[in-house]
Every structure is written in C-alpha cells, then in structure tokens.
Amino acid sequence: MSAPTPHPNQKPDLEESINVSQVHGRVISEYSATAREKRLASNGHEPVALWVIAACGFVLLIAGGVLGNAGTLFSYEETFREGYVRGAAPGLGDAGPLPKAALAAFSGKGAKIYSKCSGCHGSDAKGDGANYPSLVGSKWVLGDTQKFAMVILNGLQGPTSNGKSYGAGIMPAQGAGMTAEDLAGVMTYIRNNFGNTSGDIVSTEMAQNAIDISGKREKAGQAVNAEEIAAKHMTMLPGAEIDPAMMVNPQTLAPMQ
C-alpha cells in the first residue's frame, strides 16, 4: 500500500500564524469522511415500551417451562429422569420391545434372577468351596434338566452331585413366587454361563412342567436329597425344544415372528 499523503505541517496548533481557511481546506480535502461525521449524541431516555416488556415476559414464561424439565436443580447425583421409558418409534405405536435371539433373551432374564443366587453361590457361580458348592461343571446343573429344576424349586438337603456335604448343610427352596419364565430364564442362564456351555434352552413349557412335577412330589414342601434325585429325577423335563436363535420377546419370552 502507498504511504499517506504527506503534508508539511503535521500538527498545526491553530496559532495566530495558521491560515485557518487553508486548514479548513485541508480538512475538507483530506479528512472529509471524518469531518462530515456526526458526534455521538447523549443517550435518549425513552421509557421501555410495554410491548417489549410483554414480549420478554412471554419468553420468560417459555423459559420457565423449559426449566421445569430440569428436575432438581444442582443435584449432581441424578443423571437420568426417574421412571423414563423410551417412546415408541414414530408410526409404530406401542409395539413393545424389539425381538431378541432366544438364548440371549432367556439368559438376559435369568441374569436378573441370578442376583438372588449370587449371595451364596457367588457372582462367578463358583461357591466358596467350604459352605456353598460351585455350579460350574456340576453334574446336576448340566445334563438332564429335571434334577436341576427340582433343586432350585425345592432346595437341597445333604450331599451334592460330587458326594460332598457343604458347611451350609441345606439349600433353601427358591420356588415360592417363581414363574415358569423366571425358572426357564435362570436355568438357561446358569447352564450357559460361568463356563457352562450346554448350548440348549430350558423353555417356558419345560419350566411349567417342572413346577407341576415339583407340586406332585410325595414329600412336597421338603428339600430334595441325593437319593430322591437319583431315584426319580434323572431325566429331561418334558416339552418341545427351542432353537437358541429363534427370535423371542425379551420380556415375555414368547416367540415373535
């Protein structure tokens, strides 16, 4: 860029010696933009119009509504809304949960129920070796399903499948309040996790049959023992088998398309 136009007297101070009309001429020629500028006037003091206040008040109301969604302010513990349920996809209505493969769905349900078992058998299902037996690789857990169902529903007295008696002596019955879906889920879960790999599914039908068989036992209401299992329950539960890849509803475990 080129240099500004130089002129001989950079800082004229308007003394008597200065030719004012010449200075004015220079102002007009060089500072025309700045010379025609208007001064900033002092501020006006009009009152704030009512409609401006009304518009801002309306937005304040909207903002209050938005803030109403915030739950407890400055509560750093809550990271989600209590009881939130995801809405249905647009156009689908209330179609319920998406289908899942049977093995995953049954195991998912069973995993929640297993939390009752983990108190004794441990979160890794290995027990503690002294008071509570391991479920991993147990002959009663794997293989025929009926003996496992009877132990869960009625509890167990005396030695376990490996002939050893554990410190606890007795496993309490778990059958009270347990639905067929719960039993099917927890059996499938234990038989396919923690290193157990039976690969099959205990269906809801099988579980219902197990509950019926359990109710018709001679000594109903008492824990089973090794002799009774060996004599009566070394068999599969009756009922049709389910393909582990079949799509089912993860909540009801009923087949979906």
Binding site: C56, A63, V66, N69, A70, T72, L73, E78, R81
Partner: peptide, 24 residues
C-alpha cells in the same frame, strides 16, 4: 447424555432467555 440431569435443561433455559438481551 449421562451428565447431571438438570444441566442440559439449564442450558436450554439460558439459551431461550437469549431472547431478552437480544431483543431489547
């Protein structure tokens, strides 16, 4: 997102209220 629940709504409220300084 898993941040304290009130924070996003506080942000939304403040952004809505941008109307006041802007409009005036």
């Amino acid at each position: 997102a898993p941040i304290p629940y009130f924070i996003p709504y506080l942000g939304a409220t403040a952004t809505v209220l941008f109307f006041i300084p802007a409009f005036t």
